[in-house]
Design a protein around this nucleic acid. Sequence first.
DNA 1: TTGGCACTCATACTAAAGTACCAAAATCAT
DNA 2: ATGATTTTGGTACTTTAGTATGAGTGCCAA
Lengths: 136, 136
Amino acid sequence: MKKTIFVFSALIIALLILFQLSKYAYISGDLSIEFVIAVIAIVFFIIGVIINKKTLRKKAIPDISINTEKIAELGISKREYEVLLQISKGQSNKEIADELFVSESTVKTHVSNLLLKLDAKRRTQAIQKAKNIGII
Amino acid sequence: MKKTIFVFSALIIALLILFQLSKYAYISGDLSIEFVIAVIAIVFFIIGVIINKKTLRKKAIPDISINTEKIAELGISKREYEVLLQISKGQSNKEIADELFVSESTVKTHVSNLLLKLDAKRRTQAIQKAKNIGII
DNA sequence: TTGGCACTCATACTAAAGTACCAAAATCAT
DNA sequence: ATGATTTTGGTACTTTAGTATGAGTGCCAA
């Protein structure tokens, strides 16, 4: 937020300078009005593009980075989260058990807890919900 | 493409008119140079934003639209695809049956065919594969 | 040191999911 | 019209998934 204020302040100052310079240059007869207008047009065109790009980027980034807090918020433990990731990869309970070096019973326990915490009835629904809240 | 050329032509013409008008208005003394510059700046700023938005939109669309060919390539029928979408939403066979107004047996048949065509062992794996090849 | 929590595992079920095989309609292109 | 494909549905069976319950172990903070 501080950065944004700083950038905008600098931008406004730069624009004021540009205005004065262009006015002076025109009055002194060194430049034609067409040239001044063209420079102004180009500068503002570029500013428009940059501002728009930043705005859109800020909208896109949150989708990738909201995860960690939500996981804690739902009370999902490390092990449960590992199981969740395996589920989303399409693994069966047995396959997950083998990869995490635990028994299938343990995996089932984790899955049941996950379904409760994610408020899902099936593992497929758990995948969907987990993706929606951005934790996978 | 024709549309793009037309839009750009219209844009250039409009800009030339704007230039001439602003020049005339200034010379005739009706407007101050500050006002003319401000108008030019605002107009080009807006143009910059719009152009940039269109460019980014064109880059974003391909990600969503590579699907149709792949679906045909895998021999997935319309009905099967509908079932696939329901599966990815976390629906059970019974729930899918109710939404598509068919029996659970029918859904099971479709699911079995989907698993074969997507080369998946489970519905969760089918979701994963379908997402990877971009058909959902 | 002790209660709480995460992790582990088992048994015994119930409920879904998935397979195999068959078959009747509906749809569609030639 | 007709052969091919799609869609539909059933039965019977096997395999996963998911629930319920109980319990042992290890770790960490009060």
